[in-house]
Design a protein around this nucleic acid. Structure first.
Lengths: 138, 138
DNA sequence: CTAATCCCTAGAGTCAACTCTAAGTCAACC
DNA sequence: GGTTGACTTAGAGTTGACTCTAGGGATTAG
């Protein structure tokens, strides 16, 4: 079964070796094994686990909370409920983020139209207010 | 026309007075006026401008780039094209974020199902692999 | 066998975005 | 007019997540 050095794993995940060592130091990678010489080697399943970690980061979860989850994983079936709850919370967090992003998108699109019209007219004055704050607010 | 103290403005925007002073120090609020005594007062249009700033932050834009935009606003019509381009880029950034978030959502939902099944069975063993990394990766 | 290029650790440094402290000023109420 | 509480500044401190340095050790190519 193919394994990866820290540099190869970093490249595969689009991270740096520094970041992977940092994650390991923070306790996120208890499953990564070492050679007798002390060099880490990453298995395919380790990369998959790291992809989950990256996914949790995407939801805005801080490293310390991800560590709690990893610890639960090590603790086995006794923590199934906690882990389920955590993913339910992550799901709610992502849904909230998507709502916020959609609201943001509406504002940005409105601004695109605002500036398109201003460009066509050659001046922002068509939007009737030259005060910076008011122009920004439109 | 109603105006707001820094504390009132902060409350209205769900920020702290510290944050508003920090934004001002970074040059994001050149439009906020002061009383003769030096106290800031925020107009309704200033709050609207701050809502745009918060919107830009939501897109992942750093404070320094937001400052560039505010400077363009102060520069008038000569910078209309730059501002239009910036909003187009922000739109693309939000679209990319939404794609990423949807991908994240798929993974999270899969994990919710995984843990629901494990809870129903009373053990994660139904997913055939007790190694932490592999269980994480499923 | 040696040079190059990875790997290791501990710990320091960086960066963004706040967040707070200290020392003082201003405004409203009693 | 004095107390209270919110305002002001400059500048220091915090937090999270890296990112790098120094000083070594291991592994591969010639």
């Amino acid at each position: 079964m193919k394994t990866y050095t820290i540099g190869e794993a970093a490249k595969a995940l689009n991270l740096t070796p520094y970041t992977l060592r940092y994650y390991d130091k923070e306790g996120l990678l208890p499953f990564v094994e070492r050679t007798s010489g002390g060099t880490r080697f990453f298995k395919e399943s380790d990369l998959d686990a790291l992809r989950i970690i990256e996914c949790l980061k995407m939801t805005g979860m801080p490293i310390k909370e991800i560590k709690t989850f990893i610890d639960w994983c090590s603790d086995g079936d006794a923590t199934l409920q906690e882990r389920f709850n955590m993913f339910q919370e992550r799901k709610a967090a992502v849904e909230a983020q998507m709502q916020e992003l959609m609201q943001t998108m509406r504002v940005i699109e409105h601004k695109c139209e605002y500036y398109q019209a201003a460009l066509d007219a050659g001046t922002e004055a068509i939007h009737h207010d030259k005060q910076i704050a008011k122009a920004l607010a439109h």
